[in-house]
Nucleic acid binder design. Structure first.
Length: 590
DNA sequence: TCTCGAT
C-alpha cells in the first residue's frame, strides 16, 4: 500500500493502460482530465485484480515476470517534455504479495543483498553445464605473431600449476586446454604482453586467470588482512557489470582454498559494501571502469603493487565510450608504466584502428594471438536475414517466437526504451519475457539474467549490454530485432548462440530504410560463414556502394595483426563467422 | 545509441 502511494498519476495511468483497464490510454500525455482513473490514490487493492491480464506466467502469485525498466520514459508528459524521468526509481512493477508485505521493496534506496559467502565449496563450483565439445577444438587454427613466442603447451600439466590450482581446474570440469589456453598460458607465464583475438566461450578467461594466479601463488602473494588501502597485484576490467561478474566467478573458482583473494566491484550496488569487500583483502580486482576509478579515486585501492592489467572485450574498452576511462586508469597515480607491468587484451573482434590505439597500452614487443574457429564450430550458427519494414517488425517477431516455443531466445534491440516496449508487448501476448538494459536496477538485471538462464523466462529482450561475452548455455536463437550499427556488434551478438558444439540460429530483421549501410559487410560475413545470401540483400549491398562510394560502417573487424603491414598477407584459415576473410578486403567490390 | 559512478 505504501508502495502504491509513491506512484504518480502518470505511472498509474500507464499501468492502467497496460492492464487494459477501460478508459485508459497511454499516448495522450497531459490530458489528465479525460483519464478516468480506475486505480484510486487510496486503494492498493486494484493491483491484484488486474494482474492476471498482464501476461503473468509461472512464479509465485504476486510476482510479475515481465520486467520493464524502473526508470521508464514518461513520453511527452504533462510537464511538456519527454525523456527519461529519473526521479522515480523504485521497482513499482513488483506486485505486493498477499499477506505480509515481505519481499516488497519500494523507494529508491534498494539495498543490494549479495550472494551467499563464497566459502561454500558447492556454490563456488556450481557451474552451468558446459556444452564444450573438446574434440572440435582440435580443428581450430591458431596464429601467433610477434617475436620469440614461447612454445604452446598441450596439457594443463605442462602449465606448471601448483597443486591447489590444478585441483580447482579439475574440479571446474576442465579436461584439456583449449587453443587460446594452449598458446595464451605460456605467453603470459613468460611475462609477455598479449593481444588475443578469440571468441568468448573459447576459454579465454581461464587463459589469463590461470597463469596470473599461478604466478601470484608461486610468489607467495597472500591477501593482507583488513587495511585502509588495498594494493592488488592484478586488475581486470570489462565493459559490463554482468560480464565482469562472470569473470570474477571464474577467478573465485580457481582461487578457491588459496591465499589469493579475488574481489569484484561494479556500480548499481551499495558503494560501502563494495569498499568493505575490497578492504578485507584483495589481490585480483575485477571491475567495471566507473566503480573501479571511483574507489581508486577515493584512495581505497593503491596501484603500486600492480603487475597485471587485463582488458576483456578490449576493443570495446578502447572505443569512444570507454577510452577516456581507460586512459584515466593507466594514468592514475601509482599505476606502473606499461614497461613495468604486464598488459593483456582479449576480444573476439579487433578493428584495425583499435589495434593501433591499443599499442599505447602495450609494450612494443607484444604478441598477437589469433584463434580462428574452423568451419564446424561457427557455421553451427545458421544466419537468416529477413527484409522487414519498421512497422511489421513486432508481428514478425511474434510469428517467429511461435516457432521457437520454449527454446531460449535473445532478442536484441537498439535502445533501452524499445527494450521495455518490446518486453511489455511480448508479455501482453503471453510470451514469458524478461529484459535487460542499462536503465534497469542491478537487482532486476541480475534477476532477468537468472530467469533467462533457468529457463523461467525463455525470451530475453536486451540492448547491447548483453551482446558481449555473456556465457549463457543453450541459447538456441538470437533475433536482431534492430540491426546493430556495426558489423562487429553483429558478430558479438550472434556469438551468444551456437556456442562450442551447440547449434544455434540467428534471425535478423533488416530494414532497408535504416540498415543499408550495413549491407555490404553483412554480405561478406554471411558469405564467409557459408551462409545463404538473399539476392535482395546483395542488390542493396551493390547499389549502396554505387551511390555512396563510401561506407561509414565499412569499418571491418580483423583477426589479423596490423603490424603485418596493414594488408592481409595470409589467407585466414577457413572462413568463419568471426574471421576476417569475409570482411578483409574491399577490392572485390570496387 | 549503447555501456560506465553516485549525487
Amino acid at each position: 500500500m505504501e508502495l502504491w502511494s509513491e506512484i504518480s498519476k502518470d505511472q498509474k495511468k500507464f499501468l492502467n493502460f497496460l492492464l487494459g483497464n477501460s478508459g485508459s490510454s497511454w499516448n495522450s500525455g497531459g490530458q489528465q482530465s479525460s483519464f478516468k482513473s480506475s486505480i484510486n490514490d487510496n486503494e492498493g487493492s486494484s493491483w491484484k485484480s488486474g494482474s492476471g491480464d498482464f501476461g503473468l506466467r509461472g512464479g509465485k502469485r504476486g510476482e510479475l515476470l515481465c520486467a520493464v525498466s524502473s526508470k521508464w520514459s514518461g513520453g511527452r508528459g504533462s510537464r511538456g517534455r519527454g525523456g527519461y524521468r529519473t526521479s522515480f526509481n523504485s521497482g513499482f512493477f513488483f506486485f505486493p504479495q498477499e499477506g505480509n508485505g515481505d519481499g516488497v521493496t519500494a523507494g529508491p534506496k534498494v539495498v543490494y543483498v549479495p550472494p551467499p559467502p563464497p566459502e561454500e565449496e558447492s556454490s563456488v563450483f556450481a557451474h552451468y553445464e558446459t556444452g564444450i565439445n573438446f574434440d572440435k577444438y582440435d580443428d581450430i587454427l591458431v596464429d601467433v605473431s610477434g617475436s620469440n613466442s614461447p612454445k604452446a603447451i598441450m596439457t594443463f600439466e605442462e602449465a606448471g600449476l601448483c597443486e591447489s590450482l590444478s585441483r580447482n581446474v579439475t574440479k571446474s570440469g576442465y579436461v584439456k586446454p583449449t587453443p587460446v589456453q594452449k598458446h595464451g598460458i605460456p605467453i603470459i607465464s613468460a611475462g609477455r604482453d598479449l593481444m588475443a583475438c578469440a571468441q568468448t566461450g573459447s576459454g579465454k578467461t581461464a587463459a589469463f586467470l590461470l597463469p596470473i594466479l599461478q604466478q601470484l601463488m608461486s610468489d607467495g602473494v597472500a591477501a593482507s588482512k583488513f587495511s585502509e588501502v588495498q594494493e592488488p597485484e592484478a586488475i581486470i576490467v570489462a565493459p559490463t557489470r554482468e560480464l565482469i561478474n562472470q569473470i570474477y566467478l571464474e577467478a573465485r573458482k580457481f582461487a578457491y582454498g588459496t591465499c589469493v583473494r579475488p574481489v569484484v566491484v561494479y556500480g548499481g550496488i551499495n558503494t560501502g559494501y563494495t569498499i568493505r569487500e575490497v578492504l578485507k583483502g584483495c589481490n585480483v580486482l575485477c571491475g567495471t571502469p566507473g566503480r573501479l576509478l571511483d574507489i581508486i579515486g577515493r584512495g581505497k585501492v593503491g596501484l603500486s603493487k600492480l603487475r597485471y592489467l587485463v582488458l576483456d572485450e578490449a576493443d570495446r574498452m578502447l572505443d569512444m565510450g570507454f577510452e577516456p576511462d581507460m586512459r584515466k586508469l593507466v594514468s592514475s597515480p601509482g599505476m606502473p608504466a606499461k614497461e613495468e607491468r604486464q598488459t593483456l587484451m582479449f576480444s573476439a573482434t579487433y578493428p584495425e584502428d583499435i589495434q593501433r590505439l591499443a599499442a599505447d597500452f602495450l609494450k612494443t614487443d607484444y604478441l598477437f594471438l589469433a584463434v580462428g574457429v574452423v568451419g564446424g564450430a561457427c557455421s553451427d550458427v545458421e544466419q537468416h536475414i529477413i527484409q522487414v519494414d519498421q512497422y511489421s517488425k513486432r508481428e514478425q517477431l511474434l510469428e517467429l517466437l511461435k516457432t521457437t516455443g520454449t527454446e531460449r531466445t535473445m532478442v536484441f534491440v537498439e535502445t533501452k526504451r524499445s527494450a521495455d516496449f518490446i518486453a511489455t508487448f511480448l508479455c501482453q501476448e503471453k510470451v514469458p519475457t524478461t529484459s535487460i538494459h542499462g536503465d534497469r536496477e542491478q537487482r532486476e538485471r541480475e534477476k532477468a539474467l537468472g530467469d533467462f538462464r533457468s529457463g523461467q523466462c525463455p525470451v530475453l529482450v536486451a540492448t547491447s549490454v548483453a551482446a558481449r561475452g555473456l556465457d549463457i548455455e543453450h541459447v538456441q536463437h538470437v533475433v536482431n530485432f534492430d540491426m546493430p550499427s556495426s558489423i562487429d556488434e553483429y558478430v558479438h551478438r550472434i556469438g551468444r548462440t551456437g556456442r562450442c558444439g551447440n547449434t544455434g540460429r540467428a534471425v535478423s530483421f533488416f530494414n532497408p530504410e535504416s540498415d543499408t549501410p550495413l549491407a555490404r559487410s553483412l554480405v561478406k560475413v554471411l558469405a564467409g560463414a557459408q551462409q545463404e545470401v538473399p539476392s535482395w540483400l546483395e542488390e542493396i549491398a551493390f547499389s549502396a556502394h554505387g551511390t555512396t562510394g563510401f561506407n561509414p560502417y565499412g569499418k571491418v573487424f580483423a583477426s589479423t595483426d596490423t603490424r603485418k603491414g596493414g594488408s592481409f598477407q595470409k589467407e585466414p584459415p577457413q572462413p568463419a563467422v568471426q574471421n576476417t576473410s569475409a570482411a578483409a578486403d574491399d577490392e572485390e567490390w570496387e
